Amino acid sequence: RMRTAFTSTQLLELEREFSSNMYLSRLRRIEIATYLNLSEKQVKIWFQNRRVKHKK
């Protein structure tokens, strides 16, 4: 599987969303994925990984 290289714009938006809410509803995940031109799965995994990073 290929590793996703997020653009700086995508990362900025993902981080902004994360700062306001660490957990996404499915609807919000779809909205963000569509807006950032990513798959729902990519957004889901990014949030999972970001939560782990946040815990450390």
Rank of each mutant, 00 (worst) to 15 (best):
R1Y: 07
R1W: 08
R1M: 13
R1I: 13
R1V: 11
R1F: 15
R1S: 12
M2V: 10
M2S: 12
M2L: 07
M2A: 09
M2P: 09
M2F: 10
M2I: 10
M2R: 08
R3A: 15
R3F: 14
R3Y: 14
R3Q: 12
R3M: 14
R3K: 14
R3N: 15
R3H: 14
T4V: 13
T4E: 15
T4F: 08
T4Y: 14
T4W: 09
T4R: 08
A5D: 15
A5H: 14
A5M: 11
F6S: 04
F6L: 14
F6M: 13
F6K: 04
F6T: 06
F6V: 09
F6R: 03
F6D: 08
F6W: 08
F6H: 08
F6N: 00
T7Q: 04
T7E: 06
T7D: 10
T7R: 03
T7K: 07
T7L: 02
T7C: 03
S8D: 13
S8I: 09
S8V: 09
S8L: 11
S8G: 09
S8R: 09
S8Q: 12
T9E: 15
T9M: 09
T9R: 09
T9P: 09
T9V: 13
T9N: 11
Q10V: 08
Q10W: 03
Q10K: 05
L11E: 15
L11W: 06
L11F: 05
L11G: 05
L11P: 00
L11R: 05
L12I: 13
L12D: 14
L12N: 13
L12R: 10
L12W: 09
L12Y: 12
L12G: 12
L12T: 13
E13G: 07
E13I: 05
E13N: 07
E13M: 05
E13P: 04
L14Y: 00
L14G: 02
L14R: 01
L14S: 01
L14F: 03
E15A: 04
E15Y: 00
E15Q: 02
E15L: 04
E15W: 01
E15V: 02
E15R: 01
E15D: 05
R16I: 06
R16T: 09
R16Y: 06
R16D: 10
R16N: 10
E17S: 04
E17V: 03
E17R: 01
E17M: 00
E17Y: 03
F18R: 00
F18T: 00
F18D: 03
F18P: 01
F18Y: 12
F18E: 00
F18N: 00
S19D: 11
S19P: 04
S19G: 10
S19V: 12
S19R: 08
S19Y: 05
S19I: 11
S19C: 11
S19W: 06
S20R: 06
S20K: 04
S20Q: 14
S20L: 12
S20V: 07
S20Y: 11
S20F: 10
S20N: 11
N21M: 01
N21K: 02
N21I: 04
N21A: 04
N21C: 09
N21H: 02
N21F: 03
M22H: 09
M22E: 14
M22K: 08
M22Q: 12
M22C: 13
M22Y: 09
Y23V: 11
Y23P: 10
Y23T: 10
Y23S: 09
Y23K: 08
Y23Q: 09
Y23M: 08
L24S: 02
L24W: 00
L24N: 05
L24V: 07
L24H: 07
L24F: 01
L24G: 02
L24R: 00
S25D: 08
S25T: 08
S25N: 15
S25W: 00
S25C: 15
R26A: 15
R26D: 15
R26N: 15
R26V: 15
R26F: 14
L27K: 09
L27D: 08
L27Q: 11
L27Y: 15
L27P: 07
R28M: 00
R28W: 04
R28S: 00
R28E: 00
R28P: 00
R28F: 01
R28V: 01
R29W: 05
R29I: 08
R29M: 06
R29E: 08
R29H: 03
R29A: 09
I30L: 10
I30Y: 04
I30H: 00
I30K: 04
I30N: 06
I30P: 05
I30R: 05
I30V: 11
E31G: 02
E31R: 03
E31F: 02
E31D: 05
E31W: 05
E31K: 06
I32C: 04
I32V: 06
I32H: 03
I32W: 01
I32Q: 02
I32Y: 02
I32N: 02
I32D: 00
A33T: 00
A33K: 04
A33R: 00
A33D: 02
A33H: 04
A33L: 00
T34Y: 05
T34W: 01
T34L: 06
T34E: 08
Y35A: 12
Y35L: 12
Y35K: 09
Y35T: 13
Y35P: 01
L36I: 06
L36S: 03
L36G: 02
L36E: 01
N37F: 06
N37P: 00
N37Q: 12
N37K: 09
N37L: 05
N37Y: 05
N37R: 09
N37D: 11
L38K: 03
L38P: 03
L38V: 11
L38S: 05
L38A: 07
L38W: 02
S39W: 04
S39Y: 04
S39A: 08
S39P: 10
S39D: 10
S39T: 13
S39M: 03
E40F: 04
E40T: 05
E40M: 06
E40D: 03
E40W: 06
E40C: 04
E40I: 05
K41W: 15
Q42L: 10
Q42R: 07
Q42T: 11
Q42E: 14
Q42H: 07
Q42P: 00
Q42C: 11
Q42G: 05
Q42V: 10
V43N: 03
V43M: 00
V43W: 05
K44G: 13
K44Y: 15
K44L: 15
K44C: 14
K44I: 14
K44H: 15
K44T: 14
I45F: 09
I45H: 12
I45T: 12
I45M: 14
I45V: 13
I45D: 15
I45P: 06
I45G: 12
W46Y: 09
W46S: 04
W46K: 05
W46P: 02
W46G: 03
W46T: 02
W46F: 08
F47V: 00
F47C: 04
F47T: 01
Q48M: 07
Q48H: 09
Q48R: 06
Q48A: 14
Q48T: 09
N49I: 07
N49V: 08
N49D: 10
N49H: 08
N49R: 07
N49F: 10
N49T: 12
N49A: 09
R50H: 03
R50K: 14
R50S: 06
R50F: 06
R51P: 00
R51G: 11
R51D: 03
R51V: 13
R51Y: 11
V52R: 12
V52I: 12
V52M: 11
V52C: 12
V52Y: 13
K53H: 13
K53V: 13
K53Y: 11
K53P: 07
K53I: 13
K53D: 13
K53N: 11
H54A: 11
H54L: 10
H54W: 10
H54Q: 09
H54G: 12
H54K: 06
H54R: 05
H54T: 11
K55Q: 13
K55A: 12
K55F: 13
K55Y: 13
K55S: 12
K55M: 12
